[in-house]
Simulated assay, not measured.
Amino acid sequence: MHAEISRITARDVLELRLTADEEDTGAGLALVRSESEGDAVPVTDVEREGRLVRARLADLALEDGTWDVVSVGRSGSSNPVLTRDSGLSLSHRVDYVRRPRTRDLRAIRDPRGRLRLVSASVTPHAEVEWVEVAPGTVTVSGFLAYAPERDGVATGEVVARQRGLDGVVTAPARLDGDRFECAIPLPPLATAFQPRRKHNEWDLWLRLPDAGTELRLASHADDVVGKKGKVVYAGVDLAGGDADTTVRVRPYYTVRDEFSLLATARSGGSA
């Protein structure tokens, strides 16, 4: 089976558009763990319409890991499903992660052109889409990922916690449906700077107004991993709690692509 388009919809449906020269043999579909030997998981809810194949995966019990998509003939023989589609589509990923779910499925193409699915357990987070650094604030906006659906306008707050220390700074956050925006004040972070630690990291959570649920700020929807070594934001120099200390505060990504703020001292009180 050869597909020119292969993608997972927001409702966990694997959609395949077969190539024009592909003959419909009526083969079934199954998923086989890529990392180890094991029984195939048959995909029983499959709908065909011309060259379009829709396989509903929402009810399948899939462990975390990578799964090969295979076609199964009437004789029971199986062959890998091949695809020309890289599986990269930011708009589709954003639509996908904005729905409440505990499992994330992604369609990928391996170096040999075989179609695979990556299954991963997920928890809700606050997906950062936009960051703006100003002299006294860092404004962050985005949307709730994997979280229950919300309606209407409400006020939550962003909570900044000084990693390994006692500092806590909060700021109001505007919620409109599943979208959020917040301007985080930087002077309190500079004032709370503890010079005994070279780096003062401030980790950020979005606290929702209902039941105080907190979601970590992070950027995962674009599938770009390792942002810590790829994305660099400008810093802001502010007066520290010690009159002789200037503190630079800047946004950064952690090794887990979570969004935080970093405060460091600039010696001599100069910029």
Rank of each mutant, 00 (worst) to 15 (best):
T191Y: 13
I184D: 06
L175R: 13
A160T: 05
E157F: 03
D176E: 12
A173Y: 13
A192W: 11
V169D: 08
T191E: 11
V159F: 06
E181K: 15
F193P: 01
G167Y: 09
C182A: 14
F180C: 03
A192T: 01
R161Q: 13
G152A: 04
A183G: 10
A171G: 04
V153P: 14
A183H: 12
G152E: 01
T191S: 11
V153H: 14
F180H: 10
F193D: 07
V168A: 10
A154E: 07
D166M: 02
F180S: 03
A190L: 05
L175Q: 04
L189S: 00
A160L: 12
V158M: 14
G156I: 09
R196F: 15
R161D: 00
Q162T: 11
E157S: 03
G152D: 02
P195L: 03
D176P: 10
A173Q: 09
L165V: 07
T170K: 14
L175H: 03
L189E: 09
A154K: 09
V169P: 09
L186A: 00
V169M: 04
V159I: 05
L165K: 15
R161W: 11
P195S: 00
P185E: 05
P172G: 00
R179F: 02
G152Q: 11
L165W: 13
G177F: 06
D166P: 00
P187N: 11
R196G: 11
F180A: 00
Q194P: 04
G167A: 01
A160I: 06
C182I: 07
G156Q: 06
T155F: 05
Q162I: 02
P185S: 01
L186G: 05
I184A: 04
A154G: 12
R163G: 02
A173M: 08
P195G: 04
F193K: 01
R196T: 15
P188F: 05
